[in-house]
Structure formats: C-alpha cells, structure tokens
Design a protein around this nucleic acid. Structure first.
Length: 277
DNA sequence: CTCAGTGTTCAGTG
DNA sequence: TCACTGAACACTGA
C-alpha cells in the first residue's frame, strides 16, 4: 500500500539493513517494464561491489545513494514493496493473508550485503519502476514532483496560495504529485474527512480556515502513519481509513456519519457528506 | 468470468 | 499554452 508512509517505512527498513554495507551480490529479474528496458546486466553492474551511503525519499520515490553513480531509484507503483527474510516488514494490504515467503513472489531485485543481510524488491502488478539515475533529485521523474508532503509542507499562507490558484476538485489536487508528493488515494480521503471538507470542492473556493485545517491534517495524518510504520492496525480508531475498504452502504464512521463512495479525481473516493462541506 | 485497485502517464478537451 | 479529465497501463485476487 505504497503511499508516503509505506515508502518511508520501506526507506527505514532499507537504511537499517544497507547503510554502510557493501553490495556483494545482485539478483535482477529480466523485466523490460519495471526496469524500463534497461538490461539486467546494467543494473547488476551499477550495484555489485558498491557501498550504500544513505537511503533517501521524496514523495513515493526512494533511492539508494551509493559510493559511485548511477544510483538506484525505486517507485512501488500500486503493489510493490521491500521484503527482508523472515520477519514481516513492509507489506502490502493486497498481500494480506498471503504468507510472504522468501524469496518473495514477483521478485524484481534482490541485494545481498557484505554482512549477509538480504533485501528484496517485489512488484506483482508491474506498475512500479526501478531506475538508475546519476543524480535523482535533478532528473525526471523527481524533477516533476511538488513538495514532499511530510518534510516540506509549506507554511499556512503559502499553502493557501498554492491551493487557491487551482480549479480542480480538492481531492484531485491532493492526488496531483506535482502539487504535493506522497499523498495517495486513502490519505487524500482521510485528510479531507478529518478537515471536514467535501472532496468535490474546487480548490480555489477554500477559505483560509479550511486550508489551514487541511494542512494541519495532512501533517498529523502523515506523522501518525509514519510513526506507526504504516501499520494500519495501529491507526486511530477515529480514522475514516478503517471504514473505507468494504463499500458497505450501511457503513458508519466512528462519529456515526454514513459514508458515500464516488469517483472524484479519477479515483474511488470515500467521504461523509453530512460532515464534509 | 468480471471487475476493482493503495499509482502514473498521456491523449484529448475546452 | 494551460488546466483539467478520463482512459490506458499490467496484473492479481476477490
């Protein structure tokens, strides 16, 4: 379930395992979609023998800073994730119930480090991308991204100004990665629910009060989701999150509001019309 | 068998 | 040209 919190959790797992270590072995799938046509030998050549200096994230992308370039840039798409042997780590909601074996199903890349540690990246539906970049922050696709929704949330006045020059429904704007990088479908719904703003409101109609509320909810939802390592069982029971998945027409939020599902911004949107204006 | 899906891209529209 | 919309992408699993 790779929105910003899941990618941050993956970043931390990767960093704990890899930073300071040397990559001694690489297994790479032959997959022209996920690797965008880059032959496996070039991936292997870029990684084998390198030492990992750091693991960084912006929005839903993360990358390994190596002791020589190019570096490894990863995006999980809808179903990608990192896996480590044995202990369950960052897992996808779509893999609920399925035992995560080792090596994981749909394996795309596996790194072995000089201390014996192993890290796998898998992606069942192949909408993820694994790329080599000389300087990720200075090249596409990162150059097309807006502020990181967790680390770079603009101050209230600036946030309001950014919102109110846009005519799209606020839900669609929140999903736009060139506006705020890292917000995905459930987080957009969650922050709008908590801020009591209807998802179909045009961004430019938001008042200062509403944009301030929205901003603070983006901050708090992301902080909580990151703190729990994106473990949704530990999200507060008051969150819309726990009610949005089964499209039960009788579903009620913790405050008793009934829910509605409709397509806004091209995605299924769950919201509470009686609470969100 | 059908269809939704936590994401991004791109063609088409106004 | 710009902002925005919706289909397409690829595949699994319900």
């Amino acid at each position: 379930m790779p929105e910003l919190p899941e990618v941050e959790a993956a970043r931390r797992v990767t960093a704990a395992l890899a930073v300071g270590r040397r990559i001694v072995d690489v297994w790479c799938a032959e997959d022209p979609i996920v690797f965008e046509g880059v032959p496996r030998r070039r991936i292997v050549a870029a990684l084998r023998g390198r030492r990992v200096r750091a693991v960084r994230r912006h929005g839903k992308h993360f990358w390994l800073e190596l002791d020589s370039r190019p570096w490894l840039l990863v995006h999980f798409g809808m179903t990608g994730g990192v896996h480590v042997p044995q202990r369950p780590s960052v897992r996808l909601k779509s893999s609920r119930g399925a035992p995560s074996g080792w090596p994981p199903r749909f394996l795309k890349l596996k790194l072995t480090f000089d201390d014996g540690g192993e890290l796998a990246i898998a992606d069942g539906r192949r909408l993820g991308r694994i790329r080599l970049r000389h300087d990720p922050r200075q090249e596409p696709p990162l150059t097309g991204l807006g502020f990181d929704a967790f680390h770079e949330l603009p101050p209230p006045a600036r946030f309001h100004a950014l919102l109110t020059v846009r005519g799209a429904p606020i839900k669609a704007l929140l999903l736009d990665q060139s506006f705020a990088a890292g917000v995905g479908n459930w987080i957009a719904d969650e922050v709008l629910y908590q801020a009591r703003i209807a998802p179909n409101r045009r961004a430019r109609t938001l008042t200062h009060q509403e944009s301030a509320r929205l901003r603070s909810r983006i901050r708090s939802v992301l902080a909580t989701a990151v703190r729990t390592r994106a473990d949704s069982d530990r999200f507060p029971r008051s969150w819309l999150f726990h009610h949005r998945w089964d499209h039960d027409p009788l579903a009620r939020t913790s405050s008793g509001a009934s829910l509605r599902w409709e397509t806004i911004g091209g995605r299924t949107t769950a919201w509470a019309p009686s609470l969100q204006r």
